[in-house]
């Protein structure tokens, strides 16, 4: 069994501040961490590795410094890292990112299960995981809170999904992609031997030379999403309090609403 975990390096959101003039994140001096939801994906892959003797891969798309996120995953026990990095990939939206990651997974080859965190703590879209499954044309199960069973011979996985009003038990064919929620496990800390291994490991880099994705499908050019404006929502405080007898209040209230429409 071969498992791939897709992770994203994000700014530690507990420390992030926004530049009020440009409305962009101030990234200088902010520590980069593995997206917290992806930590659960890594842990679940490691548990499957222990249970099924699976071979595990960790993939991230980002600038060269995203290596440190891969190394952290290695220090926790993941076997093989892959960095997907090319200037041509810069500015990718969730569509282009998920296509690029799907191509990287195809290039690794023979992956039975892809695990992603349910969403990234910076973008919060929850689109990349499902996007990868769509591009690879494989089944997906999102918001998984428990892997109930895996049958490698019959090639299926049975999972529980955490929905707003209950749990949904789903059996999907392998290869498949799942996104996981924090209820699924408690991520482990790295090990000393893992950290030693991470220190010396050579990380293979997939550029577009290896992935051969047409230029109009990667990076900014390949991204249908256009960011028109970024702004900090203004905080509106207080409200209007109407006083007097009920009939009068209702009249006033209706007038006020009409003004807004």
């Amino acid at each position: 069994m071969r498992i791939a975990v897709c992770i994203k390096q994000v700014p530690n959101t507990t420390e992030v501040k926004i530049n009020p003039k440009t409305n962009t994140l101030i990234r200088e001096g902010v520590e980069s961490i593995i997206n917290p939801f992806d930590m659960y994906a890594i842990e679940e892959a490691l548990r499957l590795k222990e249970k099924f003797n699976a071979e595990t891969f960790v993939i991230t798309m980002g600038p060269p410094q995203a290596e440190s996120a891969l190394k952290e995953a290695i220090s926790m026990g993941i076997d093989n890292p892959v960095l997907v990095s090319d200037r041509a990939f810069a500015g990718s939206d969730t569509w282009a990112t998920s296509l690029t990651l799907a191509k990287a997974i195809e290039k690794i080859g023979n992956i039975d299960l892809i695990i992603c965190g349910k969403q990234a703590s910076d973008g919060d879209t929850a689109q990349v995981g499902p996007g990868i499954a769509a591009h690879l044309n494989i089944p997906q199960a999102t918001y998984v809170n428990h892997i109930k069973n895996i049958n490698i011979e019959e090639k299926w996985i049975e999972v529980s999904r955490l929905l707003e009003n209950g749990f949904e038990i789903l059996r999907v064919e392998l290869p498949a992609l799942i996104t996981v929620v924090k209820e699924i496990n408690e991520p482990r800390t790295p090990s000393l031997k893992g950290k030693m291994r991470a220190k010396s490991i050579q990380i293979p880099v997939f550029t577009n030379k290896e992935l051969q994705i047409p230029e109009n499908m990667v990076g900014l050019n390949g991204s249908p999403t256009q960011v028109v404006e970024i702004f900090t929502p203004s905080h509106k405080v207080g409200g209007k309090i109407f006083q007097g007898d009920p009939d009068h209040i209702i009249d006033q209230f209706i007038l006020e609403i009409k003004d807004l429409l």
């Binding site: 482990r188 800390t189 790295p190 090990s191 000393l192 031997k193 893992g194």
Partner: peptide, 11 residues
């Protein structure tokens, strides 16, 4: 267990 799994007992 967390200490043991992190190789802390191997020091």
């Amino acid at each position: 267990q967390a200490l043991a799994k992190s190789d802390m007992n191997a020091i």
